[in-house]
Simulated scan of single mutants.
Amino acid sequence: MRPSPAEIVRTLVAGRLPGLVHLACRPGLHHARHATDPEGRVLLLVPVVSDLAAALGAGAEERAVAVVLDVLDLPPAAGAPSLGRALVSGWARRLAGDEARGAALDFAAVEPTGDLLDVGTRFRLFRFEVAEARWHRAGELRRIDPAAYAEAEPDPLHPVEAGLLAHLGEDHAQRMTDYLRRQLGLAAGPAGHAPRVERIDRYGMLVTFGRPGARRRARLSFGRRLTDQADLTRLLEPVLSAG
Score class of each variant (00 low, 15 high):
P3G: 01
A6P: 03
I8G: 07
R10N: 02
V13R: 05
V13G: 03
V13K: 08
A14H: 13
R16F: 10
G19Y: 03
G19L: 05
H22N: 11
H22Y: 14
P27Y: 15
P27C: 12
L29V: 14
A32R: 00
A35P: 00
D37L: 02
E39M: 08
L44W: 06
L44R: 04
L44C: 14
L45G: 03
L45M: 15
L45C: 14
V49E: 08
V49P: 03
D51G: 10
L52W: 02
A53I: 00
A53S: 15
L56W: 02
L56F: 04
G57S: 14
R63A: 07
V65S: 15
V67I: 05
D70E: 15
D70L: 10
D70P: 07
V71N: 00
L72N: 08
L72F: 05
D73I: 05
P75R: 13
P75H: 11
A78E: 13
S82T: 14
L83G: 03
R85G: 08
A86D: 08
S89Y: 01
G90I: 12
G90Q: 13
W91E: 15
A92T: 11
A92I: 14
R93C: 15
R94Y: 15
L95Q: 00
A96N: 12
A96S: 10
D98N: 10
A100T: 13
G102Y: 01
G102M: 07
A103K: 00
L105D: 11
D106L: 02
T113Q: 12
D115T: 04
L117S: 05
V119G: 00
G120M: 09
T121H: 11
F123A: 00
R124H: 15
F126C: 00
R127T: 01
E132I: 09
A133R: 01
W135G: 01
H136V: 07
H136K: 06
R137A: 06
A138L: 10
A138S: 07
A138E: 05
G139V: 11
Y149F: 11
Y149K: 02
A150F: 06
A150W: 10
E151D: 13
A152K: 04
E153H: 15
P154E: 00
P154R: 06
L157P: 03
P159E: 05
V160C: 09
L164K: 10
L165M: 15
L165A: 12
A166G: 13
A166Y: 15
A173T: 12
R175Q: 15
M176T: 10
R181D: 06
R181H: 10
R181P: 02
L184S: 07
L186E: 11
V197L: 15
R199T: 14
I200S: 02
D201N: 13
M205T: 13
L206M: 08
V207F: 03
F209R: 06
F209M: 08
G210F: 05
R211H: 11
G213D: 06
A218M: 11
R219D: 11
S221I: 01
F222N: 10
F222C: 12
G223V: 04
L226E: 07
L226H: 09
A230S: 08
A230R: 09
D231N: 04
L232M: 02
L232W: 00
R234G: 08
L236R: 04
P238N: 14
V239T: 12
L240S: 04
